[in-house]
Nucleic acid binder design. Structure first.
Lengths: 133, 133, 133, 133
DNA sequence: GTGGTCTAGACCACC
DNA sequence: GTGGTCTAGACCACG
């Protein structure tokens, strides 16, 4: 499970951890039942205070993504991958809707929007191609 | 110029003011050269701390949207509407690109994305229709 | 709002705060919309670390009992009193059911249980009477 | 002696063992003088760390429920069944009293409480009936 | 070894 | 003034 922290991000560190763990779970980079890195280990790896990792893990427990296995560590909860995927999908939907709404307010009509989307899709594909090349 | 503050929003109040002023300028609801309400007046109107309005106006001056007219107040800068429109457009572009990228990471291909966009466009149109009705 | 901390309790301090705030809200000792004591103030009052109070308040926000009013403090959320009362009621129900179940397992029948309940009710009433006297 | 461990319980594993042994003794599922399974055996059976079983047995010795029989193992102490039954009874009494007290604080009077108890008794009886059916 | 809690003290943005 | 985040370091129970 590769987690990268951007200390200059506007997002809190603990939040970056939460999100990236959820992503890893959604992608089944860590599978249900598997143990996540220990608080101290991840803290060392990210050169971050253990309390910060602990807070992220606590949040993930509250969200039902992780489960505590006493004296052993924290494991990915059963059903968490599906749940994370579903949540991610609705998040994407909502953000997309917001952007489109804001574009509408800027007096773009449906056709303009489709064009805009095609342009951005092209940009993404292009970058992808460069990375692969 | 109608500004609405949502105190329970995650955005800072001064930021809400900044954004909405920029929107108003972009839409030419207030035109170049026109005076904006005084700090005190707007603060009273929004039932918000004058410091907060002051900070928003300071930000808008730094962004080149407002200009101080000595002894008179703050006015919308020449060229501000075009600038605001341009900025808004790139903001929308960036956000759209981000959403599409994240969707890509969720293993959606171009065709899935187009479909998603169409769905959301339909939702937006539908809501619009209901409001008008 | 009177909160008392028992440092020798098996419950974590932050949890004691959470529970007692919920009780106060349920009893409308603090009403919806009202501000709760500031983190620093309550910490001083309870001679506890501000972080501990902060953690309790964060939990209460997650539970929808408190709402952050930026730069002003934390306020009791609208509808929180009813919600807290309802939650408390189901908690009591569940605990009562558990006790009764365990009593059943100890081979007490319904009649024994009713008798037991009456005895305890009498004890409670008696103590109440002494306090009032 | 049937012991079931719930690893996801909030109770510590050693505590679950302690309680269930006491229950078994109270119900005379194991009788006074009888040997309990060895630490290793029970640990294997419950797929639990031997240290954990050891700790539970230590606790049970401290509570006077088990006695070490040199060179042989651990046996249920004389008088333990009666003692366990008595302890269990007072535990139930205390928990019942606590629940009733808390209910009182929620402004329920004696009559409300009796009604509540009757409802929960009915629920328990009903579930029991379903299980038997 | 594991997670959980608490303290102390610092820094930040917001109002 | 407010809450929010982070660090550092300590102590505890559990397995």
């Amino acid at each position: 499970m590769f987690i990268h922290i951007d200390p200059s991000s506007e997002l809190a560190i603990y939040d970056q951890i939460v999100r990236q763990v959820k992503f890893a779970v959604a992608d089944e980079a860590v599978q249900a039942g598997e143990l996540v890195p220990s608080v101290r280990e991840l803290a060392r790896e990210l050169t971050v205070n253990p309390n910060t990792v602990s807070r992220a893990y606590r949040q993930l427990q509250a969200d039902g993504v992780l489960e505590s296995v006493r004296g052993t560590g924290l494991a990915v909860a059963q059903g968490a991958p599906e749940q994370c995927r579903a949540v991610r999908m609705t998040l994407i939907r909502n953000r997309l809707r917001q952007v489109l709404l804001e574009a509408k307010h800027s007096r773009l009509n449906g056709e303009n929007l489709r064009e805009l989307v095609e342009q951005e899709l092209a940009v993404i594909e292009h970058e992808k191609g460069e990375k692969q090349a």
